[in-house]
Amino acid sequence: MELQAKEHGDALVVTVIDDRIDAAVAIQFKDRMREISETPHQRVVVDMSRVDFLDSSGLGAVVSFMKYLGPERRLELAGLTPTVAKVFRLTRMDSVFTLHDSINGAVAPGATAA
């Protein structure tokens, strides 16, 4: 599971390089996200624009990471592809997560959810 992280203002931006978050990589995703987010940022924004497939294990890993961050830190998702966005809509997770159309919109000053 390849992830790239960089700071952008008050946010830690994590780009998922892989095109799938599924049962084969869900545990790796969760573990890598925990490692990357050890630095204290109020917001963690995950750029998922390269992810074409997300199964229930992948969704569970994203939810688990959100819980790991706790209530004092926010997890936001950006750039969901149509297939991944559909998973979030069907499971109603789109009402749980802050979603942005793009990573640029997520890190723009005064950014709000899409």
Rank of each mutant, 00 (worst) to 15 (best):
M48K: 04
I103L: 13
L59V: 11
P109R: 06
S57R: 07
L75S: 09
G110E: 08
R43C: 09
R32P: 03
A106N: 06
D10A: 15
M33H: 00
D55E: 09
M93C: 12
T81F: 04
R32V: 03
K67G: 07
A108D: 01
T98G: 13
R34S: 07
V44S: 04
G110R: 07
L99Y: 02
A61I: 02
V13F: 02
G105F: 06
R34C: 04
P109C: 03
A106W: 06
G110L: 08
R20Q: 11
G110N: 10
V13A: 09
S95A: 15
V107R: 03
T83L: 13
L77H: 12
V16I: 08
D47T: 05
D18N: 12
Q42S: 15
A26V: 03
V44G: 04
E2H: 13
L54S: 06
R43D: 14
K67N: 13
D47K: 03
V14S: 04
A114L: 03
L12N: 07
D18V: 03
L99K: 01
M33T: 00
T15E: 04
A78E: 07
V51A: 10
S49A: 14
D101S: 12
D22A: 10
F65K: 11
L77R: 09
L3W: 00
E38C: 04
M48F: 04
M93S: 11
A11R: 09
V107A: 05
V44P: 05
D94K: 02
P82E: 06
E76T: 06
D52R: 12
A108P: 01
L54C: 13
H41M: 12
I36L: 15
A24G: 08
H100Q: 11
S56M: 09
A108C: 00
V63E: 05
R32E: 14
I103V: 15
T83N: 15
L3T: 02
V96C: 10
T83G: 13
Q4A: 12
V63S: 10
T83Q: 15
E35M: 08
V16L: 00
E35S: 13
F65C: 12
K6Y: 03
E2Y: 06
E7H: 10
F65G: 13
T98E: 13
S102V: 05
T112A: 14
V51H: 06
L54K: 09
V14H: 00
M48I: 01
E38F: 01
D31N: 10
E72M: 08
M48G: 05
V87K: 08
M1Y: 00
L90A: 10
G110C: 02
V16G: 03
F29E: 04
